[in-house]
Simulated scan of single mutants.
Amino acid sequence: MALKSSRYRKVGPASLSQRTEPRHTVVISSASLKRKGNKPIAATLLDISIYGCRFEADAIFKEGEKVVVTMDEHEPVNATMVWQKTRQAGCRFADALDTEVLRALTLSA
């Protein structure tokens, strides 16, 4: 049941950006994801922040699945899958990405 105060009042859409850190658009086709005990899966990194990334890959991931993300020549990063829709998916890094690595990735894109 609606409250009287909002019953006839239009409510605007929720804020789309609820992130604490901004995402940086990149196109890095030399990224890969690796599940425990499996071969790396080629991926294209589409955007990144210090806490996570969005990528495109020909694979199906489960929410909560642990993966290792490799980007260019940088150290691999442990991550957890958060969502997937068609070929795109997003993951959250276990530890915040070093700002120098983020800077190098965004400048190379």
Rank of each mutant, 00 (worst) to 15 (best):
K10I: 12
V11M: 13
G12T: 14
P13N: 13
P13V: 15
P13S: 15
L16W: 11
L16Y: 13
L16C: 11
L16Q: 14
L16I: 13
S17N: 15
S17T: 13
Q18S: 12
Q18K: 15
Q18G: 14
R19K: 11
E21K: 07
E21P: 04
E21D: 14
T25R: 08
T25D: 09
V27N: 13
S29W: 02
S30C: 00
S32L: 02
K34D: 00
K36V: 09
K36N: 08
K36L: 11
N38K: 12
N38H: 13
N38V: 08
N38W: 09
N38T: 12
K39C: 01
K39T: 00
K39L: 01
P40K: 03
I41H: 01
I41P: 01
I41F: 04
A42H: 01
A43W: 04
A43S: 05
L46G: 04
D47S: 05
D47C: 08
I48W: 02
S49K: 06
I50R: 07
C53D: 00
C53M: 14
R54F: 10
E56W: 06
A57T: 09
A59R: 05
I60M: 11
I60Q: 15
I60G: 06
I60D: 13
F61R: 00
E63N: 10
E63R: 08
G64E: 06
G64I: 05
G64P: 07
V67R: 04
V68H: 10
T70I: 03
T70W: 00
M71H: 03
D72K: 14
H74C: 03
E75M: 12
E75Q: 07
E75P: 04
N78R: 08
T80C: 10
V82F: 01
W83S: 06
Q84V: 03
Q84E: 09
T86I: 03
R87A: 05
R87V: 00
Q88K: 10
A89T: 09
A89F: 00
G90Q: 08
C91Q: 03
R92M: 12
R92C: 11
F93P: 00
A94I: 04
A94N: 06
L97P: 07
L97R: 06
L97D: 06
T99K: 15
T99I: 13
T99S: 12
V101S: 09
T106A: 10
